[in-house]
Amino acid sequence: MNILTRVINLPGLKRKAHASRQAEGVLIALAVITLFASLRYDAFLSEYNIMTFLAYNSMFILIGLGMCFVIMTGGIDLSVGSVVALSSVVVAKVSEYGIEVALPVGILVGVTTGTINALVITRLKIVPFIATLAMMLGARGMALVISGNQSVDVSWESNFTQFGLGKMFDFIPWPVVTMLLAFAFCWLLLEKFAFGRHVLAIGGNEEASKLMGLEVNRTLFGVYVLSGALAGLSGVMLASGFGAGQPLEGLGWELSAIAAVVVGGTLLTGGLGSITSTLLGAILLGLIFNILNFENGLGTISFSAYWQSIIRGGFLLVVVVIQAKMMNRKKAH
């Protein structure tokens, strides 16, 4: 009974308190970094930099939101970067028919890959790491085959590129609008629907969740399909915003998503997490790289794009170590 009670209560006050503390910590870090950058760089708070920053990072936020649900169940999805690349190539091929066709096609690519991941995990009982690793390789290979190992130009005569380059009311880029809608949907799904409680319960204790009568496989199926769909949507943004399907893009994006989720306080072991903190974590990581770009512009430092992976990896390692120490301290008490 104690196990069942713990699983039932985990999505409640304990999780909200944890999420609140984590969100406060990330917000403080964001405030400090923003203050520093605004004082150091004249154009940092300009409309152009803010909107460009948000538009570009919308892709990472989308896959981070999907990854958050996956990690909250105690799983992992290593395929999202490859799915982004595959989706971008496929939608570039159909971009001549406009965004009305390309958008659902891109999402369908993600849903299809997510469904395959879900079936392999829930029906064949393959651990998520191996299942999504196989999809990562398969989706990347499919993207290279379809594209002929080269970028696929999109149609500039249709309205396809308006999705990535256009703005709503000539102010807010459409990728930002789309990201905010996806964030609202994911927040509601976690906080207001039984699906979110089931996700957290499974991450807290999958066996106890089965004893409670929860549809564990159905929930896991939904989580991986959602992750795939958001990755597919990110692929549409990539092709539309950069004017080409990129079969080699998305390398390491799964690590960016994991980093954003972990920085936001979601436990890699599952059972605790926050959509809001994941959003803030993704923005925090993006902000660090935005500052590095400004420093490069000033000539103070000269970091190549490869340094982003090094910094992201180091940042992730530090956060995971802190998480592990906090968990060990709680167990000790």
Rank of each mutant, 00 (worst) to 15 (best):
residue 103 L to W: 05
residue 326 M to N: 14
residue 110 G to P: 00
residue 97 Y to S: 14
residue 321 V to Q: 13
residue 115 T to W: 00
residue 84 V to N: 09
residue 329 R to W: 14
residue 291 I to M: 01
residue 239 A to V: 10
residue 332 A to Q: 13
residue 128 P to D: 05
residue 35 L to A: 14
residue 169 F to L: 12
residue 309 S to L: 13
residue 103 L to A: 06
residue 227 S to Y: 03
residue 112 T to W: 01
residue 177 V to A: 11
residue 116 I to Y: 00
residue 248 L to N: 13
residue 44 F to S: 11
residue 20 S to Q: 06
residue 264 G to S: 05
residue 104 P to K: 06
residue 234 S to H: 07
residue 163 F to I: 02
residue 148 G to P: 06
residue 54 L to G: 12
residue 181 L to F: 14
residue 168 M to W: 11
residue 314 G to Y: 10
residue 53 F to Y: 15
residue 127 V to W: 04
residue 23 A to P: 04
residue 221 F to R: 10
residue 165 L to M: 11
residue 114 G to T: 00
residue 215 E to M: 10
residue 241 G to M: 11
residue 303 F to V: 15
residue 176 V to P: 04
residue 242 F to T: 15
residue 274 S to A: 03
residue 288 I to T: 03
residue 111 V to G: 00
residue 264 G to W: 00
residue 294 F to W: 06
residue 132 T to L: 07
residue 314 G to H: 08
residue 63 I to D: 02
residue 6 R to Y: 09
residue 281 G to L: 00
residue 30 L to F: 07
residue 284 L to K: 01
residue 144 L to F: 10
residue 41 Y to D: 11
residue 230 L to E: 05
residue 264 G to I: 02
residue 258 I to G: 02
residue 23 A to M: 12
residue 277 S to W: 00
residue 221 F to P: 11
residue 71 I to F: 02
residue 118 A to W: 00
residue 247 P to F: 03
residue 288 I to M: 09
